[in-house]
Every structure is written in C-alpha cells, then in structure tokens.
C-alpha cells in the first residue's frame, strides 16, 4: 500500500477551480517529483495534501483518510510541508525557527533529540543560531526551511520549488542533501519543481501536471527521454 494516495482530487480558490482531477501515489521511501508549467496546479496539489485549500476527492496518508482534517492535525501525522516562499519567521532567530519545527512533536524533547542530527546536514547553522532568520541569504533561508522541516522527523517531506531564485550551485547542494536524506534515512519526499532537469535526476518517479490534471506520469529516467516532456520542460 502506498504511503500517500490521491484519487480524483479537486480543489478550488473561491469560484476558481485549480485542480480538476489529480490522482497520484507515493510509496514509502520514494522521491516523487511534480512538474508542470506555472498555474498547472503543482502548489495546489501540495496544499490539498496539507489541508490548506478547499478540496474534494480522496486523499489518504498511511492508510488514513485526510478528508476533513485540519492542517494542524495533518502536520501531526508526520507530513512536513515547506510551502511556497519557505514560510520562515523572519523576525525569529535561526534557533527559534528550528524550535518551531519541533513544535509538532513536543518542542523541548524533540529539539534536543533531533537538533544534532539535522545540524549534521547543515553545520553552518550552528554558528548562526542567534541570527534573525530574515537576515540570511536566500539559499541559507531555503536550507533553514528544510532543516526546520527535518527537525520534526517527518514521514513525508513536501518541498515547493526549493530551487526558486537560487544560484545553480545552491540548488545542487539542496538536492544533494535531499537525495542523501532519502538514501540514508529512507525519507519519502514529494517535490514540486520548475527546474525539471534536477527534479528528474533526483527522483524515482514523476508526474507532469497540466491545467489541474495529471498529463504524464512514469519513472523519472523514462520521462527524461519522453519527447513531449523533453520539449516542454527540459528544453531540448
């Protein structure tokens, strides 16, 4: 049984329908990429999972339906969603941001237990602990957002365009860490990307969304060779 399963999911912002019929699955320990143009519904799909948009259809996680659950209780099931724009607290310090990541599982004991492991991936955070998060560079902020999500030891990590606005070397670094988390800790990841090349290289399978529907799906290696995908998203 897959860890995450969406079938026939619809979602709307007021009168505007953003998802028409999305069906996808993600197995435990798998990295899945979600590709598509602007407005295809990638971000909305993540929101439909984390319960921050009105949705209908079936969403289940670990065999449990997420149906009417609130975003808070979905987070408690072990889904860490790093939203569009990273969702950091710029006026809080780096350390306080990390503590907020631990909130879902009991802040004090979790931060004590998890901080060493997470700081192992991002050693530089250690010296920046007391710095305000808003004063970090864009790449550092993205890594802090990732670190904060990891502190909660999620069963599923959802990343919304981690590469947005960042230099290629930093993007590569972020995806290297994501792959490492997957291979070493068996972390399941659902990643939304515009940068199809790096997303396909880093994932096992991928879905391509077009106007609120899944248009193409398959193993990432195959999609890299798929002519339509290549032309539309890889640009060669």
């Amino acid at each position: 049984m897959p860890l995450l399963e969406l079938s026939g999911v619809e979602a709307r912002y007021g009168p505007i329908k953003a998802l028409h019929d999305v069906t996808l699955t993600l197995d435990d320990g798998e990295v899945v990429a979600l590709l598509g143009a602007n407005g295809a519904g990638k971000t909305t799909t993540l929101r439909a999972i984390s319960g921050t948009v009105r949705r209908s259809g079936n969403v289940s996680f670990g065999g449990r339906s997420l149906g009417r659950r609130s975003p808070e209780s979905i987070a408690k099931l072990g889904i860490a969603h790093v939203p569009e724009g990273r969702g950091l607290f710029p006026e809080l310090t780096v350390w306080e941001n990390l503590r907020m990541g631990a909130y879902v599982r009991g802040e004090r004991k979790t931060i004590r237990a998890e901080a060493p492991r997470v700081l192992g991936y991002f050693p530089w955070l250690e010296e920046r602990k007391t710095q305000q998060a808003g004063t970090l560079s864009g790449g550092e902020q993205q890594m802090l957002a990732l670190a904060r999500a990891l502190v909660s030891r999620p069963r599923l990590l959802m990343l919304d365009e981690p590469s947005l606005g960042l230099a290629p070397t930093i993007v590569a670094e972020i995806f290297r860490i994501v792959r490492e988390l997957n291979t070493e800790d068996g972390l399941s990841v659902l990643v939304v990307e515009q940068n199809a090349k790096i997303a396909l290289e880093s994932s096992a399978r991928a879905y391509v969304l077009e106007v609120g529907r899944v248009a193409v799906e398959g193993a990432s290696a195959e999609l890299e060779r798929h002519e339509g995908v290549r032309k539309s998203y890889l640009g060669y």
């Binding site: 921050t52 969603h81 969702g87 607290f89 907020m100 904060r148």
Partner: peptide, 19 residues
C-alpha cells in the same frame, strides 16, 4: 514562542501544527 510565530506568519504556523 508559538504565539510569536503566529503573530509573524499564521499560515506557516498552521503547517507546523500550531493551533
């Protein structure tokens, strides 16, 4: 801490399981 976080960014707080 959670109250401060909510004052800064309620939507992000919700994703971290803050009521």
């Amino acid at each position: 801490l959670a109250m401060r976080a909510v004052a800064i960014n309620p939507n992000a707080s919700r994703l971290l399981a803050v009521r």
